[in-house]
Design a protein around this nucleic acid. Structure first.
Lengths: 207, 207
DNA sequence: TTTTTAATGTAAAACCTATATACAATATTC
DNA sequence: GAATATTGTATATAGGTTTTACATTAAAAA
């Protein structure tokens, strides 16, 4: 087992992927899985999985493999997923509304507790049972609820200014759909969802 | 300049990010930018940008930097973005519908020309001017229009079977929102949009 | 015009990280 | 009790990133 700081970031990125597949196995009722079987399902290698897991301890049993329930629980612990994380959503355009209606977030422990916009036309409206609040008052709402995670679906030009306010209000992780690099202190996690960039990368290899 | 195959994949991934910032500069009317300025905007280093670009040729001018218009054009060429790519969209749930209404895809050269679902309740309906087609007939429609790119917002359990059919129908790139690993031949590009996994990674570093 | 400054492009080295290989140790199965 | 399967880890290899260095060229200043 190791200090968080010396664990390769990319290994951490793979844990949620492993967790995903374990979820699948769990629902199928599979009780034990080998690193090789897991690797086949994921299109990776058994060694990589074992190496990644070894940063956090030994979870398997020689000769048989990993108990699915136990490894699943272990990964949830490691990733701090044994609690419900409150999430604030910013931007109530088509994408924001789709996210608000998406069940997959709550199902995996990310509960949207606040929804904001700047547009008077949507503020006060109820979407999926949630009243859209005025972004002007985000500070008090975030602090009242002690929210640590924000999802941004606002226009690129507004993202940085919003992020600055969020950081001041105690937000510690931002998932942004805005096509722009956001600057924040090192202790704030930032991650981008950029489907268009992914398409643009793939076209490089086409034709 | 180099063969595609010997260019690091991660360097290719960064080109769309550079392109994004060049777009921004273009709109601002900036004519020339140095690798250092670009690096500051992106939170990376000047050397890395120059190194990445050097795989594809020399685009700058000593003493001044890069002509924004020229570099922008060059990157678009490299990434094969000087054409309109036809895209087929699968799954007309909240997310699929949001994507259909999203202007950013068409604006950057990805035109959704086909929208499919399996649900009788949506098939035949018009969404954002596009008639939803029956997934049962995807083969003929894809071939008729010669579509090479597909976006999947279908349930995880249906993704692999659908992908298999898509590959047989000539699809060469798949962008999947389904939380599952898709297997396909090496000549087919696959990329995943997985906001929940990104959240799950960030929570590792929280608290 | 000459000098100084700024910036690219590339080469080489050093470093870091990820991946693959190998294998001892151990559990399970036959 | 022997054969097989599988983990966990040590070691080697490969690959990417970062740093340093610098020749070259363009622009700005003197």
């Amino acid at each position: 087992m190791m200090e968080n700081s010396q664990i390769p970031d990319i290994a951490v990125s793979r844990l949620p992927v492993y967790l995903q597949t374990l979820n699948l196995l769990l629902r199928e009722g599979t009780e034990v899985v080998s690193s090789q079987k897991l690797a086949d399902l994921l299109g990776t290698t058994a060694t990589q999985i074992r190496k990644d897991l070894s940063f956090f301890g030994g979870f398997g049993k020689q000769g048989s493999g990993y108990n699915v329930i136990r490894l699943h629980e272990a990964l949830k612990d490691i990733l701090h997923l044994n609690k419900i994380w409150k999430v604030a959503l910013f931007g109530m355009g088509h994408l924001g509304q789709a996210l608000l209606r998406y069940q997959g977030l709550a199902r995996r422990g990310f509960e949207i507790v606040l929804a904001f916009d700047v547009n008077e036309a949507v503020i006060g409206k109820k979407i999926n049972g949630m009243t859209v609040l005025n972004e002007a008052h985000l500070e008090q709402e975030l602090k009242k609820q002690n929210v640590q995670i924000a999802i941004l679906t606002v226009p690129a030009k507004d993202a940085q200014r919003l992020a600055d306010r969020l950081v001041l209000s105690g937000i510690k992780a931002i998932l942004s759909y805005a096509p722009i690099t956001i600057k924040a202190p090192d202790n704030v996690q930032i991650s981008y969802v950029e489907p268009v960039l992914q398409l643009q990368k793939m076209t490089f290899y086409l034709e």
